[in-house]
Design a protein around this nucleic acid. Structure first.
Lengths: 241, 241
DNA sequence: CGGATTATTATGTATATACATGTTCATCCA
DNA sequence: TGGATGAACATGTATATACATAATAATCCG
């Protein structure tokens, strides 16, 4: 940011236009100069101008219409990108020591609820895990997880006694689709006891369902003491870089 | 998706490579063919192959190193894109009737807490609003908002008795940066009464701080009954399109 | 033999060019 | 006058080309 160091032509044009849009100098609905004119203004070829505009369109800052030109878009939805990283990394970033404990490990046939969680239509064997993550001395997060043994049969060979299943799974299933659900819930008696918080204290619950190329992989529920933990997300138009 | 309709060469190459990565055929760490080889394989120019790889790199699916080549990236962070849209749209998407009521509207000098929320270092006048959003007959969400009158003096002329301040603000401040904080909290006596839920019921709280080009714009806190509401986010590698 | 120098290689950026595609606007003719 | 036709226009996609840059491999020489 504001590097000063010689940026590429592409970057300079991009941040210049981005600046005009974000500052409000070019308000929503404003028609920006045509590609050819931008090319002349910045002393570059149309291809370069085109690339910049394509980039801005992908980022959602402008809308492009053939013949009509390119227009500054209306800032409709506030998109927040949450990076849900590993719990160990999260704890360590708080400068606390991290420890992990496996509380339960059961192999069984998927119950009706399990099948709902994993979006399974057929009966299947699952691995039911409960883990507790500590930050320093205190319990930090409770993890309840189901692993679909049909898609990840290798999980049966792992005992997960020393390392959390999340990181192991990432190395097994290279890329996947995920769906998150975030909500608040009062601690049940059991959860309160495990997390060492008072009964009915508000908890932040994050559920994640993951699919690989061969089907549902895992369903996991993270339960955090709500007052001690918060998800933080930042959104800047144009994003990334 | 799986359109069948004649896609562009760019799109075809992109989805082909994306498919290989997502399916695991090309696992993390795998070195994909060089640009020139891809160009030959798909019968296109190097520029086209380059564009595709650039796209994939931006999407986070691959990493590129000069001289060495392009490699399938490790799926490190699970990024979830939350689209935090307007409450009215949210309620209507549930097929419920929407109504809005302004509970409080006070103009005052920013208190110490206000200044902390808005990240203000200097004293400044603010508008303090409390609104209640209804879905059908029931209270849906409580909105507590501070508007910085230094950056948005026009807000003083608005009474917000019939329409929510959020939508009005979007039309005033064209583009902005936002920071979100999501956590769980037990309902205070006051909140419980307003939302018609039991005392100490878990609530989902979403705080948003917004900046425009001229400084802090607004701080808003949305309080939802936690059991009735959830944020849902989906993540697919490659994303968008 | 080892450290400095040079060559090679793959990506990064930019240009000029060409043709396709979808709109809008002007024109022409029944 | 109205509706079809086609020209003009702006973006979309693709190519060939050129040179810059960074990292590795090969070479040379004290």
């Amino acid at each position: 940011m504001t590097n000063g160091k010689e940026a590429t032509l592409h970057q300079r044009i991009l941040s210049d236009i981005e600046g005009r849009i974000v500052s409000g100098e070019w308000p929503p609905g404003y028609r920006l100069p045509f590609e050819v004119d931008l090319a002349i203004q910045y002393g570059c070829s149309r291809m370069t101008a085109n690339k910049v505009l394509t980039h801005l369109a992908r980022a959602g800052l402008i809308e492009r219409r053939k013949k009509s030109g390119s227009f500054v878009a209306q800032p409709v939805t506030q998109a927040a990108v949450l990076e849900i990283h590993s719990i160990e990394a999260e704890v360590r970033s708080l400068n606390l020591s991290y420890s992990y404990r496996l509380e339960r490990r059961v192999r069984r046939e998927a119950s009706a609820i399990d099948r709902q969680h994993l979006e399974l239509s057929e009966p299947a064997p699952v691995l039911d895990l409960v883990c507790l993550h500590h930050a320093g001395e205190r319990p930090f997060c409770l993890e309840e997880r189901l692993i679909n043994l049909t898609t990840v049969p290798e999980a049966e060979g792992e005992d997960f006694s020393s390392s959390a299943p999340g990181t192991w799974l990432i190395s097994q299933i290279p890329w996947n689709t995920a769906e998150h659900r975030i909500y608040a819930q009062s601690a049940s008696a059991e959860v309160a006891k495990t997390l060492d918080i008072s009964r009915n204290a508000a908890c932040l619950v994050i559920e994640r369902r993951t699919w690989g190329s061969t089907g549902p992989v895992t369903f996991v529920r993270f339960i955090y003491p709500g007052d001690r933990h918060a998800l933080v997300a930042r959104f800047t138009p144009g994003g990334e870089s």
